[in-house]
Simulated scan of single mutants.
Amino acid sequence: MAAGIQCWGDHGLFQIDGSTPMLSLKDKGSGTTGGLFSMSNADYVNFSLGSVPYSPGDLIALQCYGAPIALSGKNLDGSAQVMALGANVSFNWWRYCRHIPSGTNVGMEIYDGSGSLIYDTGRPILQVVQEIGGSGDFALPGGRAYAVLTQRTYSRKEKDVRDNGTGFAWIHVDAYHGFIQSTASGFHAVNELFAGGFVSVVGRMDQQGIDFNTYTLGGNQDNLFTVIDVTNT
Rank of each mutant, 00 (worst) to 15 (best):
L62I: 08
Q6V: 13
Y54L: 13
Q6S: 13
S38Q: 14
N213D: 15
F14S: 11
T183K: 03
L62E: 04
V201S: 11
G143D: 07
Q151R: 01
S19K: 10
A80K: 12
E158Q: 10
S55D: 15
Q81D: 03
Q127M: 05
T166H: 04
D160K: 15
A61T: 06
Q127H: 04
V129Q: 06
A61Q: 05
M83K: 08
G18N: 09
G186S: 02
T33L: 01
Q207S: 14
K74D: 09
Q207P: 01
N220I: 03
T166M: 11
Y111D: 00
Y154H: 13
G203D: 08
D77Q: 05
N75T: 12
L126T: 07
H172E: 15
M39G: 10
D206F: 02
L149H: 10
L117V: 04
M108I: 13
G29R: 00
C64H: 12
W93N: 03
I69Y: 08
I118V: 07
A195V: 15
L25K: 01
I171K: 14
D206G: 13
Q221I: 12
L71C: 06
G50Y: 03
G115N: 11
G142Q: 15
L193V: 02
Y146R: 03
D206V: 01
D160M: 15
D211H: 12
H11Q: 10
G4L: 10
H177I: 03
E158H: 01
S185E: 08
Y111E: 03
I110K: 09
T121R: 04
G136I: 01
G178D: 05
